[in-house]
């Protein structure tokens, strides 16, 4: 922090230069996977020397927005009046009521809006799991996602799986993953119709997966 502060001042207090220095740094570009992780962990178990990226759970708003992105519902407009919970705009613009709480966002540690919060908590609770796997909101996103995918790819199971995984995990599925997915969708012949209910379930599972919820 000292070094950064000094750098900031040296560069005439310009934020752009500061941001560039941070974003182009080796530390910033790290992955959470490190070839020497086990030996480094022995020496620096709390990872205080920042030798790898710390795996991060998405924040409450990011979880909601990422789901809307995956289901292609996200209204990505900047600014404008505040929105209600049901509107698929970014969570940033959602109205906050201090005597109510949106169960999804608050379950994932959104600040209460009553006192300033310097650092948000990051918890892992069964309540979150229940909301994600049983809750109406997440299931509705999965339904929308399945409907849009079907609209675009018909019953081409491989294409459906490829696109669903790409949308949720930001990468192509492995051969094994495709095999598991095909088995889950109960498709035996390539010409076979993909059951929209099963595709919905598949999307729902992707939205619940750690690879979706964590950034590494």
């Amino acid at each position: 922090m000292d070094w950064l502060t000094d750098y900031f001042i040296q560069n005439e207090w310009r934020f752009k230069a500061l941001h560039r220095a941070i974003l182009l740094s080796a530390v910033w570009k790290q992955s959470s996977e490190h070839p020497l992780a086990s030996s480094y962990r022995e020496r620096d178990p709390s990872e205080s020397l920042l030798w790898r990226f710390r795996i991060q759970r998405l924040k409450a708003e990011q979880i909601r927005d990422a789901m809307l992105m995956a289901s292609e519902e996200l209204d990505n407009r900047i600014g404008g009046p505040s929105i209600n919970e049901a509107h698929p705009g970014r969570a940033l613009y959602m109205k906050q009521f201090r005597n109510q709480n949106n169960s999804l966002l608050h379950a994932f540690d959104l600040g209460g809006g009553l006192k300033s919060v310097a650092v948000r908590n990051t918890t892992t609770t069964p309540t979150q799991s229940l909301i994600m796997i049983n809750g109406e909101y997440v299931l509705s996103r999965a339904k929308k996602m399945a409907a849009r995918l079907t609209h675009r790819y018909g019953s081409d199971a491989r294409a459906l799986i490829q696109e669903a995984v790409q949308r949720c995990w930001g990468r192509a599925p492995s051969t094994d993953e495709i095999k598991n997915a095909i088995a889950f969708l109960n498709v035996t012949k390539s010409s076979e119709e993909v059951d929209i209910a099963l595709l919905t379930d598949f999307c729902h599972v992707l939205l619940n997966s750690n690879e979706f919820l964590y950034l590494d």
Binding site: I55, T124, P126, Q128, S129, I133, N210, L213, Y214
Partner: peptide, 12 residues
Amino acid sequence: ELEARIRSYELA
């Protein structure tokens, strides 16, 4: 935390 999340589903 990844293991913890897996277990949170079991707890749920």
